[in-house]
Design a protein around this nucleic acid. Structure first.
Lengths: 235, 235
DNA sequence: AATACAATCTGGTATATACCAGTTGACAAC
DNA sequence: GTTGTCAACTGGTATATACCAGATTGTATT
């Protein structure tokens, strides 16, 4: 039933990519060139490309072009491995960039979740994480300084889990996770260099210590095409 | 920085919906009417509507119009509650429709996962699930008949978990979960009555019995705007 | 060799228009 | 009343065109 020119184009590139004739990271021809080659207008080309983007096969860089998406990383929040570790184990190169850091009074929501009084200083940390130089994840974290005094003076572009283990003898254990597949909010889209309205995966995570205190609250914004989440539930 | 007519439109409807001036389920004016009212072309209107769709605020029904999205259901795969139970507990009405059912020989992949020999009969079950009469989830399940003999003769549009418990004294316990945020494959999009290329959430689930045998393998395809997933990880 | 700048290439946004294909509702025929 | 038909309306697909703004590149200048 669904026969149209943009679907033909979509199928064409989809096949090329799946057969590995267009390799990971390759730049596609420009929208105008594709249109000329297939004798369709740019509007039609863009519809095909946007669908391929939704499928996660290609992605765009603003006014630079369209590129073939590299394989997604598999992320197991329960594995207690750091981002750096699991990315490296899958044969890619992780990189973390600190965008902002600030000790600030806890707002009502954070205070309630952390069971502390509103206004208590917490550490806000804003980071961008890369795989093979491609930005794929924005983190905004609120960290309980009562449990981790002096953390604000450490190098916070390093692995946090490693830092917690070595300096504080703390580790991530229990956590509450929430996932939502939706367009990224504009602040996250901007930080990732993608246009507002693009699909993404939002994760909220509350990390607990072994004695059930809230260590940290994370808001994560992932490119939808960059991650698959695996979790084992064991009673 | 991002100032354009379609963003203005997007913001306009986004505000109306968030302020509850356009209520859940309401039909928007037609694309042509919106275009006339705001003095923009239909192409621009559609760009705004498509972004609102990506944000999960509105959804479309083919050639019927655009509607305001109802609230998402919260799904906790580890809660051991059935779909019917958790939907009902959140004040909505669940409904299940069996689309297909068939005893078939296990293919290589299913056989390997179930630790059975290829060709052993398994029960394939294909269902569509609704919330308040809106189709939001397609399930394709492969069920281990060695562990559940005769299941194919039961009414399979009912709650499976209830059936397993009552007739077989079995229940869902351990499971492996995999989530991926991506455009739904065309078969799932068709079953949900949405156009190919729309965003969705794909879930793969392997259910184990208490003695570590594979009871069932599920492939779930959710509307992205219909669900939020919550999981508690406890060591 | 390093720098500055302009031409060119890219995707981003927008107009105007046309025809197609399901859905709906009104009305006529039974 | 029920059924059938048809016109009007909806979103779906597509053409042709235009201009904007950021990114890239080649060239002239220093």
């Amino acid at each position: 039933m669904p026969n149209s020119q943009y679907r033909y184009l979509q199928r064409h590139f989809s096949d090329l990519i799946r057969d590995n004739k267009l390799k990971s990271g390759t730049k596609l021809p420009s929208e105008r060139e594709i249109g000329e080659a297939f004798k369709v207008t740019r509007v039609t080309v863009r519809q095909a490309l946007q669908n391929l983007e939704a499928e996660g096969l290609i992605y765009r860089q603003n006014r630079r072009g369209w590129f073939v998406t590299p394989p997604a990383v598999v992320y197991d929040p329960a594995s207690h491995l750091s981002f750096n570790r699991y990315v490296a184990e899958q044969g890619s190169t992780p990189h973390t960039e600190k965008l902002a850091q600030q000790v600030e009074p806890a707002n009502a929501k954070i205070a309630q979740l952390m069971c502390i009084t509103e206004g208590t200083p917490v550490l806000f940390l804003h980071r961008r994480r890369y795989i093979n130089l491609r930005p794929i994840l924005i983190e905004k974290m609120y960290i309980n300084l009562d449990l981790l005094p002096g953390l604000e003076n450490e190098d916070l572009s390093q692995s946090l889990s490693q830092l917690l283990q070595q300096k504080y003898q703390r580790e991530y254990r229990d956590m509450d996770l929430s996932f939502k597949s939706t367009a990224l909010p504009s602040h996250a889209a901007n930080d990732l260099g993608i246009s507002t309205g693009q699909a993404g995966l939002q994760v909220e995570r509350i990390n607990y210590t072994s004695d059930k205190k809230v260590l940290e609250i994370d808001y994560e914004f992932w490119r939808h095409d960059a991650v698959t989440i695996n979790i084992a539930i064991r009673d």
